[in-house]
């Protein structure tokens, strides 16, 4: 990415926090993502005012208010288009988008695909807990078909879950990684790499919902680093995804597609030549 203004003095993760107290349930994985993100920003020494974090709607989409960067809490599913517009108009900023699995893959699913495709230099962090927390625990696109704890889907959804990494790779994301909220330091590293990598970076973070999916506390025991290095070959990455069980952590893919960034340099300074076209 184009490095934005950095601070000369060392930054502490806490410098990136606002005074607003999160509304998340104690024990929620999103607290760790908040920590990971502030660690990543501190590590990069980014000036807080040069960073913008855009979100949609959902538990995890409350994130921007808890940070001392510029934030925008948009409507459900639209974090990516807002972030895209901002980055294209203001390439000098470090633009991040964040949200949950429902926001990003269900109502915002089309934007996810097209943002991967468009490859604007933004980093998208999805906190996946396989459930809609804010509306009291309904199934999300990443929920297993037999999860039957929601009144909305008695007996389970009976619908195959969505594989975000597969979609991201197929749609052309330039950086694809998975992290876990059980390892905020590892997640911080992935986020730093994602921000530094040009183009659209997708970071899938397993972030348990201890209220509606208490069994997800076990994720901590299930996650493990992927035994291989990141590849720039999409074919290799696709092969690896064939055996991915959703718990391998680390960077899967680092592509080398140039980001989409139109040149915003004016070539004329008044409108007379434009208006001339209308003259008879």
């Amino acid at each position: 990415m184009m490095e934005t203004a950095t601070s000369c003095t060392p930054m502490k993760p806490k410098d990136y926090k606002s005074g607003v107290k999160p509304v998340w349930c104690p024990g929620c994985g999103d607290f760790s993502v908040l920590m990971a993100l502030t660690k990543a920003l501190a590590e990069m020494r980014l000036a807080a005012e040069q960073v913008a974090l855009i979100s949609g709607i959902g538990c995890s989409s409350r994130l921007p208010a808890y940070l001392n960067v510029y934030g925008f809490h948009s409507v459900h599913g639209r974090a990516l288009p807002v972030a895209t517009g901002l980055k294209i108009a203001r390439p000098d900023l470090t633009v991040l988008a964040a949200g949950g699995d429902g926001d990003g893959f269900s109502i915002g699913g089309n934007h996810f695909m097209h943002s991967c495709r468009r490859n604007v230099d933004i980093t998208y962090i999805v906190m996946d807990n396989q459930v809609y927390g804010m509306t009291k625990g309904q199934a999300s696109p990443t929920t297993d078909p037999d999860w039957d704890h929601s009144k909305l889907t008695p007996g389970g959804t009976k619908v195959n879950p969505y594989y975000p990494l597969v979609i991201a790779l197929a749609s052309g994301a330039n950086f694809i990684a998975r992290a876990s909220s059980s390892d905020p330091n590892g997640a911080a590293k992935v986020i730093v790499d994602a921000i530094r990598h040009p183009g659209f970076s997708f970071v899938h973070i397993l972030s348990p919902c201890i209220t509606f999916r208490p069994e997800q506390r076990d994720w901590k025991k299930m996650v493990r680093p992927a035994p291989v290095e990141a590849t720039s070959n999409p074919v290799t990455a696709a092969h690896r995804l064939m055996t991915d069980d959703n718990f391998f952590l680390g960077t899967l893919y680092k592509g080398n597609r140039p980001p989409y960034q139109p040149d915003l340099t004016p070539v004329i300074d008044d409108l007379s030549s434009i208006e001339k076209d209308f003259e008879l």
Binding site: P26, G27, F31, S32, S182, N185, K189, I210, K220
Partner: peptide
Amino acid sequence: PHIKPWNYNWDDAVNLQTQDNHVAHYLM
């Protein structure tokens, strides 16, 4: 010296949020 977060190596010792115990609860 500056130590990068991912070089700490002691995460479990201090990470309250990620302990897989069930007391991380609003009624604790």
